[in-house]
Amino acid sequence: MSAELRKLIKDAGVRLVKENLVQGTWGNISVRSGNGKMLVTPSGMDYIRMSESDVVEVDIETLEWDKSGVKPTSEKKIHASVYRQYPNINVVLHAHPYFSSAFAAAGAVVPSAADRSENLIALGAALKAKAGGEIIVGSYGLPGTKKLTKGVVNALPGRKACLMANHGLLVLGETLEEAFELLKAIENYCEAVIRGKLLILPEQSKV
């Protein structure tokens, strides 16, 4: 089971990189592994070079891990707080997608009040239903700090996602696929709103 979950995390990390949902070594992923533990991505390691054995098992209550191995993500507090509060959630994705991050920089809620076009209003309503409510922005804090964790904890109740001020996006799921679907839906919506406001069309490849 642990080997399967480690592979799941490794594959998820590669997917985040390839779909440009994170850049560099930013972002992190966790999966609930049972017996009060979670498996999380290591700190400061890029997902392409990361191996399955670099994934770290951390206790959800105590945040303890095997100190003889690599260090877990500095955002482990956020992941642990989610698993403690939401027993049905098994996956947490912390990503830095381009357009969602723009909303996070502005402290703007998703769906946006800034756009009144019919199709985006409908898209926004569908997204709100999928996420369990409006996706709001948790208060600002430096990465790895209690302040950032508190911001997330306060922004999540009743929802499966929140924005992190000037930082990125956190998405929860019962499965990895559910979490990725929601992440992509949020990013696609945010992209559509921003491109519409700035009148910058997506590039068309001739290939």
Partner: peptide
Amino acid sequence: AGGNAVGK
């Protein structure tokens, strides 16, 4: 640019 388009 996008952040300023949807807020500040």
